[in-house]
Amino acid sequence: TQVHVDGVTYTFSNPEEAKKFADEMAKRKGGTWEIKDGHIHVE
């Protein structure tokens, strides 16, 4: 599962880990995350 944050791609083999990471990054940025085309995007 790929997580895209500010133009950087992080790859996780476990989708649950990817979601936890996205959640943390979104909180830090004061933003949100969503799943697009099977990838997670942090806004």
Rank of each mutant, 00 (worst) to 15 (best):
F12V: 01
I35D: 10
F12E: 01
H39E: 12
W33C: 13
D37M: 04
H4F: 13
V3F: 02
G38W: 02
E17H: 09
H39I: 15
A26C: 14
H41T: 11
A22H: 01
F12N: 00
K19P: 00
T9E: 08
I40H: 01
E24Q: 09
E24V: 09
Q2A: 08
K36G: 05
I35H: 05
E16K: 06
M25G: 01
E24T: 08
F21A: 03
V8R: 13
I40P: 02
G30I: 01
E43T: 15
T1L: 11
V5R: 01
H41I: 14
I35S: 07
S13R: 07
A18K: 00
V3H: 00
W33R: 05
K29T: 14
D23Y: 08
T9W: 13
D6V: 02
G31Y: 11
G38F: 03
V42L: 07
G30C: 14
K36E: 10
T1K: 04
A26G: 03
D23S: 11
T1V: 12
V5H: 06
K20S: 11
K19I: 15
W33G: 05
F21W: 06
K20D: 09
I40M: 04
A18H: 00
A18N: 00
G31K: 02
I40W: 04
K27P: 03
A18R: 00
H41K: 07
T32M: 13
E17F: 06
H4G: 01
S13T: 11
G38D: 05
T32Y: 15
E24S: 07
E16W: 09
S13V: 11
V42E: 02
V8H: 12
T1W: 13
E43M: 15
K20M: 11
N14D: 14
T32R: 14
H4W: 13
Y10I: 09
Q2F: 13
K36Y: 13
E17D: 13
V42K: 02
T11L: 12
G7C: 15
I40C: 05
D37K: 00
V8N: 10
D37N: 07
E34D: 05
H41Q: 08
A22R: 01
G30E: 06
W33A: 10
D23G: 07
K19Q: 10
H41P: 02
A18F: 01
W33D: 05
T11M: 11
V42R: 01
V5I: 09
K27F: 10
E34N: 06
T11F: 14
K27I: 10
F12Q: 00
I35R: 03
M25Y: 08
F12L: 03
V5A: 07
P15H: 12
K20G: 08
G30P: 01
H4Y: 13
P15K: 09
A22P: 00
H41R: 07
T9D: 06
G7F: 05
E34K: 06
Y10H: 09
G38H: 03
P15Q: 12
E17W: 06
K36M: 13
W33T: 10
G31S: 05
A18M: 01
G31T: 07
A26F: 02
P15E: 14
Q2W: 10
V5F: 09
A26Y: 02
R28G: 09
H4C: 14
V42T: 03
F21T: 01
P15L: 15
G31H: 03
A22D: 00
E43A: 11
I40F: 12
K20N: 11
T11C: 14
E34A: 05
E43D: 11
E34H: 13
K27C: 14
S13D: 13
V5G: 03
T9P: 04
F21I: 01
A26M: 04
Q2R: 10
E24H: 08
D23H: 07
D37C: 14
H4S: 05
E16Y: 09
K27L: 11
Q2I: 13
T1C: 14
I35Y: 13
M25E: 12
E43I: 15
F12Y: 03
K19R: 12
I35W: 15
A26P: 01
N14G: 07
V3R: 00
R28V: 13
T32F: 15
V5N: 03
V5W: 04
R28H: 11
H39K: 07
A22F: 02
N14C: 14
T1N: 06
A18Q: 00
T1H: 08
D6G: 08
E17A: 11
A26K: 03
D23K: 09
T11Y: 14
G31W: 09
T32I: 13
W33N: 05
E24I: 11
S13H: 10
T11D: 08
I40Y: 13
N14R: 04
H39T: 10
N14E: 11
K29M: 15
T32W: 15
E24N: 08
A26E: 02
A18D: 00
G38N: 06
H39Q: 13
Y10F: 10
D37T: 02
G30Y: 02
Y10A: 03
R28F: 11
P15D: 11
V3M: 01
F12W: 01
E24P: 00
K29N: 14
G38K: 03
K36P: 05
K20A: 13
K29A: 12
G30R: 04
Y10D: 01
G7L: 04
K20W: 08
I35N: 06
K27Q: 10
V8D: 10
T11W: 14
K29R: 13
D37A: 04
E43L: 15
E17K: 07
E43W: 14
E43P: 05
E17Y: 06
T11A: 08
V8L: 13
M25C: 14
W33S: 07
T1G: 03
R28T: 13
P15T: 12
K20V: 10
Q2K: 13
G7P: 01
K29L: 15
R28K: 13
D6P: 01
H41Y: 15
A26I: 14
G30S: 04
E43H: 14
Q2S: 10
T1I: 13
V8P: 02
E34T: 08
H41N: 07
T1P: 05
A26H: 03
T32P: 04
D23P: 00
D6K: 04
T9Q: 08
K36R: 10
I40V: 03
